[in-house]
Design a protein around this nucleic acid. Structure first.
Length: 241
DNA sequence: AAATCGATGCTCT
DNA sequence: GAGCATCGATTTT
């Protein structure tokens, strides 16, 4: 008589699915590494029973210490930027220009964090579209899918991420906001390295540092750097000769 | 395709 | 009071 098939409980099944949620060790690496490791991963936001998902396609490093563009430059520490000093994997969501939000994730290193600059919407796109339209001053404005996440504040609007509900969340344990491995996505994409956006006032030296990263050829990034892409393609094609 | 500019209100000095 | 890790509309190449 053959052994009885093992019956898998539903609870166990759902647990194994949610076990793709990334844990502390993933975040506990230097800022530069985390910014690169986050590319291709899934940002997940729970709204009620819906799981909104988007692929992270563009990130930026904010290093703290010597980094003049960082809110934590020179070890500066205030009530507002406290999450940058909290354990790796902590959400740092702040308001800017009085009406927009930016979403960062703290890494290893004092005051260091990674800014999420763009996502590619994948699941519950209709819900993201609704958040985007409700937020817009022009009520009849329609958006393309490419416009839901191609900017740090746009992705916050579409995912309903603000500092009231998401600041200081621990992404390792939160039930409303986390990062997952994307098992269906190939990890052999090329990463373009470029300068950060919107920080010109800190001076050339730090404004030009190569601290922005995005997936080559992805249509959902906020800003392409044709020069950097050219060098990357040149370098990879030279390997084939 | 790129440059310019106003909106808008919170945080820090 | 100054400045802002942006966005969207408008104007200019």
């Amino acid at each position: 008589m053959p052994p009885p098939k093992k019956k898998v409980k539903l609870e166990d099944e759902s647990e194994s699915v949610s076990s793709t949620k990334l844990k502390f060790d993933f975040y506990n690496v230097p800022c530069y590494n985390l910014a690169n490791f986050l590319l291709g991963k899934l940002l997940v936001r729970r709204i009620g029973n819906d799981l909104l998902k988007g692929r992270i396609v563009e990130t930026e490093c904010y290093l703290g210490g010597e980094d003049k563009a960082s809110h934590s430059y020179g070890g500066r520490r205030t009530i507002g930027n406290e999450p940058m000093y909290m354990p790796p994997g902590t959400a740092y969501v702040y308001m800017t220009y009085g009406m927009y939000h930016c979403f960062n994730i703290s890494s290893a290193g004092p005051g260091a964090a990674v800014l999420l600059r763009a996502i590619q919407p994948l699941e519950h796109i209709d819900q993201m579209m609704e958040f985007r339209e409700i937020n817009c001053k022009n009520r009849s404005k329609k958006f393309k899918v490419e416009e839901l996440g191609n900017g740090p504040s746009k992705l916050c609007i579409s995912m309903s991420i603000d500092n009231k509900t998401c600041n200081k969340l621990d992404l390792c344990t939160s039930s409303v906001l986390w990062i997952e491995e994307d098992v269906d996505y190939s990890n052999d994409f090329e990463i373009v390295v470029s300068s950060r956006i919107g920080i010109d006032s800190v001076g050339e030296e730090w404004a030009k540092k190569p601290l922005r990263f995005y997936i080559l050829g992805n249509n959902y990034v906020s800003k392409r750097d044709k020069q950097a892409e050219g060098k990357l393609i040149e370098a990879s094609s030279s390997l084939c000769t």
